[in-house]
Each structure stands twice: as C-alpha cells, then as structure tokens.
Amino acid sequence: MITGRQEHEEMSHLLPSYVTGGLEPDEIAAVKRHLRRCVRCRALLAEYRSAFDAVGLSVPLKEPPPSLRSRIIDSLPAQPPYRLPSPIRFILDHPRAAIAASFAVLLILFGSIWLNVSGISGAALPAGNHSARSAEDILAVMSGTSVAPDARAIIAIGADETSGVLYAFGLPVLPAGYAYQLWLMKDGVRKSGGVFRVTPEGHAVHHIRLPVPLTEFPTFGITVEPESGSDDPTGSKILENQAPGSDGASQPGIEETSGFRTDL
C-alpha cells in the first residue's frame, strides 16, 4: 500500500517531466490527481514552470523593426464591450437606489455595533432607534486616481470614532506579495490605517482601529505596498478623498508631504 508520503515523493519526482511534456497519459493523470490535494507540489510546480520559462527568457535579444510598434497600435481592433462587475453596474444604473441601500446597510450595521457596544439588546429597543446614527457616519468618500479611475471607496466610523470600516470597489487585483495600505493624514503627519487585499472582483471590506478618533484626519489615501505594509507610502496612489472644504481641485501640499506617487 502506498502511503501519502510515498505518493508525494513519487509525484514530486515526476514534476520536472510533467512541466516539460515528458510523461505518459496515465502518469499525467496521476500527477494531476495528486496536485489537487498537495499544496507543496502545487508550489513546487510553479517553481518548475518558472525554471522552464527561464529557458525561453535566455534567448539573445533582437530589436524588432522600429515601425512594428506603430503598426501594432494602428491595427488594434475595438475592444469588446466592457461589462462592469455587477455591484458597480447597479450603482451606475441606479445611483439613488444604491446610495439609499448603502446607507440602510450602514445604519443597520452601525446601529448593531452601537447596540452591542452599549450592551443593549436590539429586541429591547424600539425599531426607530436603529436609525439613531446619521449620514455623518460616512467619514470619507474616496475616488480612484488616474492609475485606477474605476476605484471607489467610503470610510464609515463606529460609535466611538476610533474604529471604522473601509468599503472599496473596483480596485485592481494585485500580484502575490503586494497589498493595499490605507493612510490617514493631518497637517503633514501620516498614520497607517492597515493593509488589505481585494476579492477577485476588486472589492474589499477593511476594518480600521486607531488609538485616536478617525475624525481628526481630514485626508485619506490608499497606495500599493508590500503585503507586510510600509512605514511610509512607497507605491502608486490608487485612491484619495477630497478633504472637507476642498473645492474639488487637487489638494495642495499632499503630494509633497505624503510621499505618495501618482506616476508609474
């Protein structure tokens, strides 16, 4: 009888041949079965594939004709119509309904948080009290920069104002090793609001907790950083908000004091 360990050793031994097309059909089927349940072999397979790619990457580089670039750009066909992810499509098609629904969800959510924090049972409270929180709970509305113009986010705060939730949509999915990092800024001072990743659809719900009230910060930004987070922003800025009182023009001083990069 073959043990799991024996099977793993046998199958991992076959991976180089699997990658280079050197196995018989029955061996390929056995490797595929093993890969479905072996995380280590899946990681090893990715490494062998990269090693095989290196054979291709090692070719001597030759310059294509200078005219090829413009020929390619000139020959590009129209892209197929873009289907937005369904939540964004709904928001764009029904903006009023989407805003109303968002506030209703937030009111219920934060009403529940407030009730839990207060130790009050929802059942013991009149239904009308669930709407005690107001639109002031929305601390910031963030828009995508030129790097990711489809991105949108809002930050809502909890009852104690030192915690909040970021809801983000339309963010690019980042490669392994990278994450988004939220920054809160006031008078040129930055604080990290934590790092987060997004779903394959580009959505995220990120919880924020700071030792000081979030309401102290007028400016927020989100950048691409290594997944462990950075002490200061180092990657491209993806989202930003308009500080209260702003006329919608870019905020003077933010680029200089925050260290954000908008270029690629």
């Binding site: 030759k62 294509p64 090829l68 670039r69 590009l76």
Partner: peptide
C-alpha cells in the same frame, strides 16, 4: 480599459522579448 498608450508602454517593456522569443 482600452488605453492604447498603456499597450504602447507594454510594448516598450516587452516587445523586444516577444519578438526575440
């Protein structure tokens, strides 16, 4: 998103590799 300039940038980065391979 349909930005041809971005495809041009991608070509500048990898066109030579694709052509050479």
């Amino acid at each position: 998103r349909g930005e041809k300039d971005a495809l041009g940038e991608l070509y500048d980065l990898y066109g030579r590799l694709v052509y050479s391979v």
